[in-house]
Nucleic acid binder design. Structure first.
Length: 405
RNA sequence: GUGGGUGUAGCUCAGGUGGUUAGAGCACCAGAUUGUGGCUCUGGGGGUCGCCGGUUCGAGUCCGGUCAUCCACCCCA
């Protein structure tokens, strides 16, 4: 039996890899325009980092981590998300003490030991950004607009949902009220009973219909925001409206990771099945301090790359050259010529002598823009025959002209 | 971890009630009078019918198990 890729692990090969590269390039360029700089933390981190940042209550930490003891006896795990590693790096390199604003973007593999389904894999890719040191709600807005610009550049359809999940000043009192509400209602589903103890605000986005009916009467998070949270949330909406960004306020949008505060947002697609979040993020003003750094406000988001690739179309166009010969004795020359031309252009070279017709077919198949052939006549008078496969024009050129073309 | 669907050529799939050398389309390779592409036509290569076991004279087809995969729950990008 041949060896196959592990469950939930996918190869990215053409034509998908073209889409992958196109997306990363475009997203990086846009992030750079917003003054985000590239960072690449390790894929493997101490397990404790994720337990403390993502939170023990989340399923990610509870049962989805690729965790193991390495040969040195260290408890390590493959990163299940990107923020924790970037924050660790930020603190380790003492950027928190340096002060000022630091903006980073990253992309790469994340690992979660889950059952695969549509839009969900064990190894998947995220493109994310993290901004440190800027408490202004304008930064929240800028980050949302950055994500929107990336999605828009690929003509992706989505709805933007925003919410505020409060801060340590107001969230705990809300949680208390919610728990006492949940305790009074015995007919909520089993999952919600479990959530009540582990992460109560997660009940709000339960998919069970009867639960949702009950929660219509539940205390509202947005009515419990402290003055600071309320002010920022209102301002965020004003900024988005001023920029003509359509959004909905979704009080049930609570993000799964413990470290979020205040602004939470998600971009959702209706074309993806159950896993419909294509990007998600928010503010996490307490995480840096919680992980041992100087108190530093922060905001960020992550885009699920595989989910995006499902939604984008890349039209492939003709480019580059196809080079071949109709004579065996010209192959050496053709091969050498190919290497020279490749210093400046994309070129496919055929090692077998073929008929002109066969060459044109092959050139067409490889999406070359120009078919360049050396036949008997060309070999004798030192020229090359070139045909523009789009314009259907053909001509003879000297070898020198060909190389400079 | 739980539930349901599906496993036949590289890909998409046909193969009533079990019966000789397992098929199609697409893709690939080679040709269609010798130097002109994307269309058409002809030919060719390519399959342990997921795997193991059982029933049977005989299993791609029936039964059991197993593995893989997809979708959903859970969770999340």
């Amino acid at each position: 039996m041949a060896i196959k890729a592990l469950r939930g692990m996918k190869d990215i090969l053409p034509p998908l890899s073209y889409k992958y590269l196109a997306f990363i390039q475009k997203a990086s360029a846009i992030a750079q325009n917003y003054t985000f700089e590239y960072i690449e933390p390790p894929l493997l981190e101490e397990t404790q980092l994720f337990k403390r940042s993502v939170g023990e209550s989340s399923d990610i930490v509870g049962k989805e981590m690729y965790q193991f003891i390495d040969k040195g006896g260290n408890d390590v795990c493959l990163r299940p998300e990107g923020t924790a590693g970037v924050v660790r790096s930020f603190i380790e390199h003492k950027l928190d003490r340096q002060g000022g604003v630091h903006r980073f973007y990253y992309y790469g593999s994340m690992f979660r030991y889950e059952r695969p389904q549509k839009g969900r894999f064990r190894q998947f890719h995220q493109f994310g950004v993290e901004s440190f040191g800027e408490a202004s709600v304008y930064e929240d807005a800028a980050i949302i607009l950055l994500a929107k610009e990336i999605l828009d550049s690929f003509d992706i359809k989505y709805t933007l949902a925003i919410n505020s999940i409060g801060c340590p000043a107001c969230l705990p009192t809300y949680k208390k009220e919610l728990v006492s509400f949940l305790t009074k209602h015995k007919d909520i589903c089993e999952d919600c009973k479990r959530r009540k103890d582990t992460n109560p605000i997660r009940v709000l986005d339960c998919k069970n219909a009867t639960c949702q009916e009950i929660y219509n009467e539940a205390p509202k998070l947005l009515e419990h925001l402290c003055e600071s949270c309320q002010r920022d949330f209102t301002k965020l909406q004003e900024i988005l409206k001023a920029e003509n960004v359509e959004f909905v306020i979704d009080e049930r949008l609570v993000r799964g990771l413990d470290y979020y505060t205040k602004t939470a947002f998600e971009f959702i697609s209706s074309e993806l099945g159950a896993q419909n979040a294509i990007a998600g993020g928010g503010r996490y003003d307490n995480l840096v301090e919680f992980l041992g750094g100087r108190p530093t406000p922060a905001v960020g988001f992550a885009i699920g790359v595989e989910r995006i690739l499902d939604l984008i179309e890349i039209t492939q166009h003709r480019e580059g050259f196809y080079l071949g010969s109709m004579l065996d004795e010209a192959i050496d020359k053709v091969f050498h010529l190919a290497l020279q031309k490749r210093k400046s252009a994309k070129l496919y070279v055929e090692y077998k002598a073929k008929s002109l017709k066969a060459h044109l077919k092959a050139a067409d198949k490889h999406d070359a823009k120009y078919a360049c052939i050396i036949g008997e006549d060309e070999l004798q008078n030192g020229t090359i025959w070139i045909k523009d496969l789009e314009a259907k024009k053909e001509w003879h050129a000297s070898i020198q002209e060909f190389l400079e073309f």
